[in-house]
Design a protein around this nucleic acid. Sequence first.
DNA 1: CTCCGTGCAAAAGGTTTGCACTGGT
DNA 2: ACCAGTGCAAACCTTTTGCACGGAG
Lengths: 148, 148
Amino acid sequence: MNEDEIEGRLREFEVICRRRGLPLTVQRRDILKAVLERDDHPSADQIHDAVKERIPGLSRTTVYRVLDTLVEMGVIRRLHHPGAIARFDGKIHRHHHLICRSCQHVIDIETKSFDTLKLAPSQRHGFEIEDFTVHFVGLCAECRRKMS
Amino acid sequence: MNEDEIEGRLREFEVICRRRGLPLTVQRRDILKAVLERDDHPSADQIHDAVKERIPGLSRTTVYRVLDTLVEMGVIRRLHHPGAIARFDGKIHRHHHLICRSCQHVIDIETKSFDTLKLAPSQRHGFEIEDFTVHFVGLCAECRRKMS
DNA sequence: CTCCGTGCAAAAGGTTTGCACTGGT
DNA sequence: ACCAGTGCAAACCTTTTGCACGGAG
């Protein structure tokens, strides 16, 4: 994500905070910035590592709590990729994932042609669908090479 | 999954074991049976609870190890739904999921019309795609009711 | 008989919680 | 000044690992 885009998202975040009366702390701002600055899907611990350079006393606890808050606010997303560790993503628009079943590496893809994907009302089980993600599972080039 | 189907899957499992020279233990058979018997996506601990009624001395460790073996054999699948706990599924054919972002409840859906979904070669990043799953995220009827 | 699988206990992460203090509004 | 947010430590929960024993091939 480029500098301008990040600035925009941070300002948007400030607006949501004020509207909800949520205190705008340095920790929240810097943690959000750290998530937006990365294109991979960092774990809570990776975020902690990145942010504690700017905020030396930053505790892991705070990172977890702030990430929860940000997810709840809808400014970042919680992902559930293989590895059993929660990972976070600043991209909140629709995108999909390629997941290697061997090394568990994840690559983001944006395939606009899937946007027409729709669930028939009879299949919705009373859900109000807000979005969807397609997970493609297979073997990455690297792992395929290693196996042969 | 009905009785006959489970029987078939268990026999299929025995065949794979013999072919690979893997010892066919009571634990493996009963753990697989427990996963097949459930339509929700039980966690390792839920499997442990279910099976230890039949095998009182069963240890959690064994459940984890057997589940790994079964996944590696391809007779069950490991899922990564919200909740940060690995969950397992006996359904190994393609199916999709409705996930409530509030209560994290998961419902299986089988939507054959998605079977045509295909990734353009330029989007494959060298991956060999084997399968895919669509995750629909939204609010279930129950949570929507509670919020209003 | 030989190994692999199992059970137990302990360790190893990741995440959550209780409490006192700090800092934003 | 008030209340929410933070830091620290400890608790918690899921999963993994080391080692000795027992059962399957």
